[in-house]
Simulated assay, not measured.
Amino acid sequence: MSMRSFPDRVRHALLFEAIGLALVIPGGAQLFGLPASHMGVVGVGSATVATLWNFVFNLGFDHAMHRLVGHTRKNLATRVLHVLLFEGGLLVLLLPPIAWYLGMSLWQTLLMDLAIVVFYVVYAFLFNLAYDRVFPIPAPERMAAA
């Protein structure tokens, strides 16, 4: 079975969140007219939840994919499905606490979050394509020899 190792999954999750935060905190503060400190709390809190979700979701997705199709190689259609399911789950996890923290209604928070989701859908798609190229899954024979 060709799957990513535990250290590779940790590297993936941490790189994804660090780069995402570096982009979304200043961009979100500017776009939504929020103090950078508020966007920072939302960003860091969201990144913490997202990091855990990223690890759990990707592990589950790969196991499901391996069980359903016998491998974990992701083509374009699979990557689109992957990112949409990931972001949908993350939205369900994050919307209530963000609305509470910012003192906004769920509807207002959803509208604000949709802009962030659009950013992260595009970012996740591009990040994962790049990650797969920079850190390819080792061939099964190389994994067995290691």
Rank of each mutant, 00 (worst) to 15 (best):
L84N: 12
E141Q: 11
W107E: 01
V118W: 13
Q30G: 04
G28P: 00
H38T: 05
A99S: 13
L15Y: 06
V118E: 08
Q30F: 10
V10N: 12
A18V: 04
M3V: 02
N54E: 01
P7V: 13
A18I: 03
H38N: 14
W53M: 04
V42L: 09
Q108W: 06
G33H: 14
D113T: 03
R4C: 00
M143A: 12
Y120L: 06
P140Q: 13
I98W: 03
H38F: 10
G28E: 04
F127W: 04
G43A: 11
G103V: 02
G45D: 11
H63Y: 13
V44N: 14
A144I: 01
S5V: 02
L76C: 05
G70A: 07
R67A: 07
L23P: 07
L85M: 07
M65V: 01
L129M: 07
F127D: 04
L31D: 03
L21S: 11
V80I: 13
M39F: 03
S5Q: 12
W53H: 07
P138A: 15
R11I: 00
S2L: 03
R11T: 01
M3N: 09
V24K: 11
L14E: 03
I137P: 04
V41T: 07
W53A: 02
Q108L: 11
F125N: 13
G89M: 07
D132R: 08
V44D: 14
A18H: 05
T78Y: 11
L106D: 01
R73C: 03
M104F: 01
N75S: 10
T48Y: 10
L81A: 13
S46R: 14
L111C: 09
S2N: 08
E17K: 12
G33W: 09
L84V: 01
V122H: 12
A144D: 02
A124L: 02
H66F: 08
V118A: 13
A47N: 13
N75L: 02
G70M: 11
F6R: 15
A18K: 09
A115T: 06
V134D: 14
I116C: 12
L106G: 04
A64W: 09
L23G: 14
Y120W: 08
F6N: 15
S37R: 15
Y131N: 08
E141D: 05
I19L: 10
P96W: 04
A18D: 08
G43N: 13
A18L: 05
P96V: 00
R9M: 04
L94Y: 08
V56K: 15
N58D: 06
L31F: 08
T48V: 15
L31V: 06
F57S: 02
M143S: 09
D62I: 01
R4V: 00
L129W: 04
L95P: 04
D62F: 03
W53F: 01
E17N: 07
I98C: 02
L106M: 08
T51F: 05
L76D: 09
